[in-house]
């Protein structure tokens, strides 16, 4: 039942986010500040994870919210929540920067160990954790434990390193079809974690 509670909470949150976006379209800076406070603690580590430097991550964070400020009307509700829209924007920008800088990160090792950050994160809840989407964060973390190492690695390579499925196949020396299947499975497990299998 607590999944249902999460969903209700999430729906409520998205409604608030959509209201904030509407205010942002009317150039309400306070609304932008609220949205920033709400999601920066998730977006910032995401950007750091991808581009590896705090400086770049800070710049990306600013660019993301500038884009929200200028293009709030570009949000399409049918394509997901406000949160997912902003996260995707942040990831795109970070990956772009990663590529433009050409600094392919060293973490391209092809072993199947998930990265430290995930290992850290999957360990039990950290008392210093901020509480953005706390319930969700917890259930996603425990869901990750149901993913195989390979599934996690494949997701990481595509999500944080921006690798294509065929690049991953080459890197991990496995058939493209396997990579596709694993990826789909991994995403599906993430979905199930928060009862989002059917939207």
């Amino acid at each position: 039942m607590w999944l249902l509670a999460l969903l209700v909470q999430r729906t409520e949150q998205n409604k608030q986010d959509a209201d904030l976006l509407e205010r942002i379209q009317r150039k309400d800076q306070q609304a932008l500040a609220l949205l920033y406070d709400r999601y920066a603690p998730v977006l910032y580590p995401l950007a750091v994870r991808i581009v590896a430097t705090r400086e770049d991550a800070e710049e990306i964070l600013q660019e993301v919210f500038l884009q929200v400020w200028e293009k709030a009307s570009a949000y399409i509700p049918d394509r997901g929540s406000v949160y997912s829209w902003i996260v995707a924007m942040c990831r795109h920008r970070a990956i772009d920067r990663l590529r433009s800088k050409g600094h392919k990160k060293k973490s391209k090792e092809t072993d199947l160990e998930p990265s430290q950050s995930v290992l850290h994160a999957t360990s039990d809840s950290d008392p210093h954790d901020l509480i953005v989407m706390k319930g969700y964060a917890e259930s996603v973390r425990s869901a990750l434990k149901s993913l195989s190492r390979l599934e996690v690695k494949i997701l990481e390579l595509s999500y944080y390193e921006g690798c294509s499925q065929s690049e991953i196949a080459k890197m991990l020396k496995m058939p493209l079809g396997t990579v596709k299947t694993k990826m789909r499975k991994g995403i599906q497990k993430l979905r199930q974690a928060v009862g989002k299998d059917e939207v």
Partner: peptide, 23 residues
């Protein structure tokens, strides 16, 4: 929408951190 929603959960596995005030 489903994919976006699911993938947006992935960064929740990272340790959350407030960026510096100056940002």
């Amino acid at each position: 929408a489903r994919l976006n929603e699911a993938l947006a959960l992935f960064p929740l596995t990272l340790k959350q951190e407030q960026p510096h005030r100056k940002v």
